[in-house]
Design a protein around this nucleic acid. Structure first.
Lengths: 232, 232
DNA sequence: GAAAAAACGAGAGCACTGCTCTTGACGAAC
DNA sequence: GTTCGTCAAGAGCAGTGCTCTCGTTTTTTC
């Protein structure tokens, strides 16, 4: 009986996958704004209303694409970081940074979906939060491991964080257990430096300004690591 | 004769201004994607086709809004920075940073338009480039003045930029005359740190993570200044 | 195995969008 | 006073998301 039931559910799963595949291709070429349910249906040889049997709204389709994007980015970062030995903290950091940048350049529209301006009228549901943190978790783990191994030595020039920030820091400390507030905020700074750069590059702010972007990016990420005190 | 001619042109200028005003209000509430020529026309008591006498396309209307946004941000940053004495480099830097952040929070959709993911199908024309650099120019001027006054003393921990980046650095040096490559790239890092943070905050990445955002932002910008060696 | 129930694709339709074209009216210039 | 350019209005085209209904098919239930 499960076999007969599966017969229908299998074709349903197959069609659902086909819809998301086509939608992802449209998203990659035209961007989120150009994603049209009717166009997807047309390409499937379906009538537009039939799509709604599989996705109740355009936003729902977009949500699954967003989750896929989060996972795709997270996986890329995880794999890149895993290619370095545990004690090579700087290598792991740089590998993760390059993975973020390269994934973003290869999937600009997906990147815009998850790290760009929010899609108008679209509110990301709770479902996305789980997949959302995979890339950040990798970065946190690198710093956490380095801190644990006493390989994080912030230079003394950095000003101390004001005491008002202690509450926020203690929440973030879940990612980097045992680290003092100063290291927490230096890590946040490194994090924003990474995504600030990638945002600028993907959204075209470096056009006609920086040409050798990969080299400049690596230098910027080395700067961020040095500021944090991650030198090996 | 110019008076009679002006009579017509004056009402035209007036209507053009009214259109952009309404459009800006729609943009501020609904975002770029929700900006509808028909809705603007409806609010003006016009028929939709009449709008095209004033703006040949939706993108043209969007372009003027973008230019306005650039100028609005640029002016805010200029004014904030001008409120500090020339020798107070750190104060000028922090004031400019806060101005960017506060403007972005007050005008999230406008900010998304100029620093977020590009609007699908929209390509910013050359006209925007002139207004685009006003905020960056202020930041560059602060660092340039500080460098000239020998108030920039980068700590020795930063790795030296590789020689391949010399060409790109020399282009950027227009903003900070006479600065060595190391200072150029530290400035770029501070720049990306600023907009990386503001992007994260405006686009909601700090939700449920950082609560005291103004304090955290100021600390981050002090860190960026310290990394650059701007301590006074 | 037959009947009830659920799932499904197709089609029409609503309200909306950007944009084009034509038509008729008004005002300025010669 | 006539001509010419400017303008608002309206109809229309092609597209969008989404809803509803109507047969058909498949699954479940008895």
């Amino acid at each position: 009986m499960t076999a007969s039931r599966t017969a229908r559910e299998r074709v349903r799963a197959e069609l659902t996958r086909e819809i998301t595949d086509i939608a992802r291709r449209h998203l990659a070429t035209e961007g989120a704004g150009g994603l049209s349910l009717r166009a997807v249906a047309r390409e499937m040889g379906m009538v537009s209303s039939a799509i709604y049997r599989y996705f109740p709204s355009r936003d729902d389709l977009l949500t699954t694409l967003i989750i896929d994007s989060y996972n795709s980015l997270g996986e890329a970062v995880e794999q890149a970081e895993a290619g370095h030995p545990r004690e090579d903290f700087l290598g792991r950091w740089l590998a993760a940074c390059h993975a973020v940048r390269e994934w973003a350049i290869e999937h600009p529209h997906e990147y815009a979906l998850i790290y760009g301006s929010p899609v108008p009228g679209y509110q990301a549901p709770q479902d996305t939060i789980v997949a959302r943190v995979r890339d950040v978790a990798v970065l946190g783990r690198v710093v956490a491991d380095a801190w644990e191994a006493e390989a994080v030595r912030p230079p003394g020039v950095a000003p101390a964080p004001p005491s008002e920030l202690a509450a926020d820091a203690s929440g973030i400390r879940e990612l980097i257990p045992g680290a003092p507030d100063s290291v927490i905020w230096l890590s946040i700074a490194a994090w924003t430096a990474l995504y600030g750069w990638v945002n600028f590059e993907v959204f075209g702010q470096f056009n006609n300004t920086i040409e050798d972007r990969r080299t400049a990016f690596e230098h910027a990420m080395r700067l961020a690591a040095a500021t944090l005190g991650l030198t090996q």
